[in-house]
Nucleic acid binder design. Structure first.
Length: 573
RNA sequence: GCGCCUGUAGCUCAACUGGAUAGAGCGCUUGGCUACGGACCAGGAGGUUCUGGGUUCAAAUCCUAGCAGGCGCACCA
């Protein structure tokens, strides 16, 4: 149910059938024609730019055309009761009462009101934090973004796989296992844990070491190399548990975990390279020396190179290290070949700002692997800056250098974190203020939206009614006041918000919208304090039927919106 | 040097993807609310949309040349 779509198609039909009487030559192309929400001060339901668009194509004056369109709309479209021409030729339209009521009834019947009703397959890779330690705050933003994007796409009717790529291979993991091993020695023999940049000093490593000792009392771990594979398996098990625990506390679960070690073991890189060689996208060659950095250790070595510049990258990328083994990127290419082979129509990667430079090459790889049939869409989340008591908040006792997700979760609830992290475009840095997020006031948008919903439920409790029972009220008995009209129009806007949030994955539009809707509702609610005529209840009875329609509409949209955001909606606060 | 992101009210950010008089919150300021459920509501002040040029009925938005900030830039992961 999208009233703008419905009424726009009415308009288009009419224009085509009235082409002659309107004296228009070109009416076949409606690109750019929109039906929109007019700015509030105009007090209309719909706004259409059609006369500007058609005037341009037909090379005539838009205002003149608008006058003719106004007449013909009013004559032929029963759903329109009043039209005003504004600005350069906008047609501002008021819906007839019956159209308005019909729209409202259709919305209340539509459980997934706002859904774009699409049906595609998506794979979304997100978080993919290194399993060398717990999640830090930076990961949280991407984690929530990915989770909510999945919710949104599912709400729209798509099939979504949420995937986590475990980087359980390479030198970082080696250093991680080494660190665990040294902590084991420390616990067993009081051997001091050395200071070394490549090791992981965080205290969680100690926890993992202790667990391993406790669960494997019969094994002697003194020799690292002998026990390496065992230690790796055990350590990764515990560190992934840490990560999954944090994710769960944030309300996030993945459908699929994909291991880099598996890629190596299954020799997927050779398969991917073979395909790319056949298509001449991979060749032997030499890398350019690095430009911005010191090139003291630079060696000119012949190696396999992926020609990503063919797909818009800035430079070609190495698939082999100096010693001839595969690079991290090569493994990732193989991983994405696997995704392509799993026949998803759309691939999405959610990345942190520090991986911006990686976007072009991996997008190029997917284009090359899928012969341009699949486009990988990479979304980058900018940094999160934490504030507490008005000052930047740093350090974590347990995680070592980062602020961990745990630090955050210790202070703030999941609902708050989720809403606040989504309340900014992913393209801008985010200031996360510990103090503000805990407030129970208007300054805290999460609370403000939840409170609107709680108020509705309180009202229903008083009236002994429940939400979204089939409501059908004859239009004779309906007469909205100005505040109610504003809310109804805002509710009409909801599918447009979903549509534009879905188009470029601009998730912040959802919390912004919910906040605005809540503002209108709180104003409506409070009006009863100034003016007795606006009271909702009199003698334990609802005063006007319109109130029931309005609160059901608001509740429906808040429910749909918050469930996409994954934020809870208490009935009492 | 190169790439990506950002630049809008004192501060933090929106702006339906090219639309109308550029909007919210905080802060500042004036008033209301001793309860349908308190943590709210109503009003006011506050703008050369970083700068210059271009595209058109229309530019914060697109193009172009700059300026400023953030992230990144062999190999490593």
């Amino acid at each position: 149910m999208n009233i703008f779509e419905n009424h726009l198609s009415e308009i288009k039909k009419l224009i085509i059938s009235e082409k002659k009487s309107l004296k228009l030559n070109y009416v076949n192309d409606f690109r750019g024609v929109n039906l929109e929400v007019p700015p509030e001060q105009f007090n209309f339901d719909l706004s259409c730019n059609i006369s500007m668009v058609l005037a341009k194509k037909n090379k005539i004056d838009p205002k003149n055309l608008a006058i003719r369109l106004k007449d013909i709309f009013l004559n032929k479209i029963e759903n329109f009761s009043e039209i005003d021409i504004a600005g350069p030729g906008f047609l501002n339209i008021k819906l007839s009462k019956s159209a308005l009521i019909n729209n409202i009834h259709s919305i209340l019947k539509d459980k997934t009101y706002g859904s774009t009703k699409s049906n595609e397959t998506y794979n979304i890779e997100f978080v993919s934090a290194n399993p060398t330690g717990p999640m830090h705050v930076g990961h949280c933003r991407g984690a929530i973004y990915g989770d909510v994007l999945s919710n949104l796409l599912r709400f729209n009717g798509n099939k979504v796989t949420k995937e986590y790529y475990i980087n359980d291979y390479g030198s970082q993991i080696r250093n991680f296992i080494k660190s665990v091993h040294l902590r084991i020695l420390e616990i067993k023999y009081k051997k001091k844990f050395p200071k070394n940049e490549n090791l992981y000093p965080g205290l969680y490593i100690k926890d993992i070491a202790e667990k391993i000792i406790k669960e494997n009392t019969k094994i002697n771990f003194d020799d690292l190399e002998k026990n390496f594979e065992f230690l790796k398996r055990e350590s990764l098990k515990f560190s992934m548990e840490l990560i999954k625990k944090d994710l769960k506390l944030l309300g996030i679960t993945h459908d699929n975990f994909f291991s880099e070690t598996d890629i190596v073991n299954k020799d997927l890189v050779n398969k991917a390279v073979k395909i790319l060689k056949e298509r001449s996208f991979v060749e032997e060659g030499f890398l350019q020396p690095p430009k911005g950095e010191s090139s003291a250790n630079w060696k000119k070595i012949k190696r396999l190179i992926f020609k990503s510049t063919l797909f818009g990258d800035d430079t070609d990328r190495a698939l082999q290290k100096n010693d001839g083994s595969w690079t991290y990127f090569a493994n990732d290419v193989a991983y994405h070949m696997d995704k392509v082979n799993r026949n998803y129509k759309n691939l999405i990667n959610i990345l942190g700002a520090d991986h911006t430079g990686y976007v072009k090459r991996i997008t190029a790889a997917v284009s090359a692997l899928s012969e341009n049939k699949i486009k990988l869409n990479c979304k980058v989340c900018q940094l999160v800056k934490l504030y507490k008591d008005g000052a930047p908040f740093k350090m974590s006792k347990r995680a070592g250098e980062f602020i961990s997700a745990q630090d955050l979760l210790n202070e703030v609830e999941k609902d708050q974190i989720r809403f606040m992290m989504l309340n900014r475009s992913n393209d801008v840095e985010l200031d996360f203020d510990f103090d503000k997020v805990k407030e129970k006031t208007k300054d805290n948008p999460v609370f403000y939206v939840q409170y609107a919903y709680a108020r509705i439920n309180s009202l229903l409790r008083t009236l002994n009614l429940s939400l979204l029972k089939e409501i059908s009220i004859s239009e004779k008995y309906i007469n909205f006041n100005a505040l109610e009209e504003r809310i109804v129009r805002k509710v009409f806007e909801w599918p447009k918000i979903i549509e534009s949030a879905s188009r470029k994955f601009d998730l912040h539009k959802i919390p912004f919208y919910l906040y605005e809707l809540s503002t209108l509702f709180h104003a409506y609610w409070s009006k009863g304090n100034d003016d007795r005529n606006y009271k909702f209840i009199e003698k334990e009875q609802i005063k006007r039927k319109e109130i029931l329609l309005v609160i059901n509409l608001v509740a429906l949209v808040i429910q749909n919106g918050m469930s996409i955001l994954g934020v809870s909606l208490p009935k009492k606060m």
